[in-house]
Simulated assay, not measured.
Amino acid sequence: MTEPPVGRRERKKAATRQAIADAALRLFLERGYDQVSIRDIADAADVSTTTVFKHFTGKEALVFDQEQDRESQLIAAVRQRAAGQSILDALRQHVLDSWLPITAHPQMAEFTHLVDSTPALRAYAERMWTRHTDSLSAAIADELGVDHDNLACVTLARFVLEVPALARGQRDRRAAVDAIFDILTQGWQPPTKSSAPRSA
């Protein structure tokens, strides 16, 4: 089934949003998060401050401009998985397909430093993380026909969302993602000295 073509208005709206987000990230990386105002971002993107707020709720949302899409993609990975595919295998493939390309972005290290060194962004990321856990665990629970507060579903969602952070420092990130999902699938086993992964 093909999706209907995106209209010109929607394309223009998406392009404006992307231009604002790109300008914001460039300024944040150049000057530091606290030294950049919404007016600075609007000027750099050649839009009004009103336009900025039409697309984003605030400065923090400008840094994490794709998180809403990522959340919906996580849920879709669970709900729209192939027939016969397990929830864990679907989430494993989603992480490999969506997160690994991000780690190769040339600005990834700068972005991570920006978030880690800015208290407001760290706090926003933590709130966002909690929301993702709730949404993903609810999707998993729905697939299994159990209550949304089911501890097993909440725990699985939280561990899956931690996979990128756990794999980020490993030399072979793909192998690390697979190893973590193997633990989630098969259960934890005490590692031997030769099998312990090394950090980069």
Rank of each mutant, 00 (worst) to 15 (best):
A83W: 10
V95L: 02
K59T: 01
V52A: 05
A152C: 05
R70C: 10
A14N: 06
R11K: 15
A196V: 07
D147L: 15
A104W: 00
L166H: 05
Q93P: 00
F56A: 05
L74M: 15
A120M: 03
H148M: 05
A42G: 04
Q73N: 11
A76I: 02
M1F: 10
L161V: 07
D46P: 08
R70E: 13
L151E: 10
D46T: 14
L166M: 14
E143F: 05
L144S: 00
T112F: 09
L151M: 15
L29F: 03
F111A: 15
S117T: 11
V177H: 00
A196Y: 12
V177Y: 01
L166Q: 11
W188N: 08
V63F: 00
I41P: 00
V115D: 06
V63M: 06
L91N: 02
D97G: 10
A125D: 11
L161E: 01
L62Q: 02
I38N: 11
R131D: 14
T50P: 02
A44S: 10
V115G: 04
V47R: 00
M128E: 12
V6H: 01
P164F: 01
I75M: 04
V163C: 01
Q18Y: 07
S195G: 04
V154K: 12
D34S: 07
E60W: 03
A123N: 13
D97H: 05
I102R: 13
A138P: 07
A90Y: 04
A15E: 13
R9G: 11
S37M: 04
R11P: 07
S37G: 04
E60L: 09
S135Y: 01
E3H: 06
H132T: 14
Q80G: 13
S195L: 05
A125G: 11
D46E: 15
R122Y: 04
V160C: 03
L151D: 08
D149L: 12
H55A: 08
A120S: 14
V146P: 15
A176N: 03
R70Q: 12
F53S: 12
R81S: 03
A157H: 02
S98L: 05
G84R: 01
T185G: 07
H148T: 11
A45K: 00
D116E: 14
D69H: 13
R81G: 00
G187K: 02
I41L: 04
M128A: 08
T2R: 09
R8S: 14
S98D: 14
W188T: 10
Q66F: 09
Q68D: 14
H55S: 05
A19F: 07
N150A: 07
Y124E: 14
T2D: 15
R122F: 04
Y33T: 01
D134A: 14
R17G: 04
Q80P: 02
E71I: 10
A125E: 12
A200L: 06
R92T: 05
L91K: 07
R70Y: 15
R92D: 07
D178N: 08
I87M: 00
A44L: 09
P197T: 11
L100I: 06
P106H: 06
T155F: 10
L136R: 05
R31A: 09
A21V: 06
G187L: 00
R17D: 07
A138M: 13
L156W: 01
W99Y: 13
S195Q: 10
A157P: 00
L121P: 11
R171F: 06
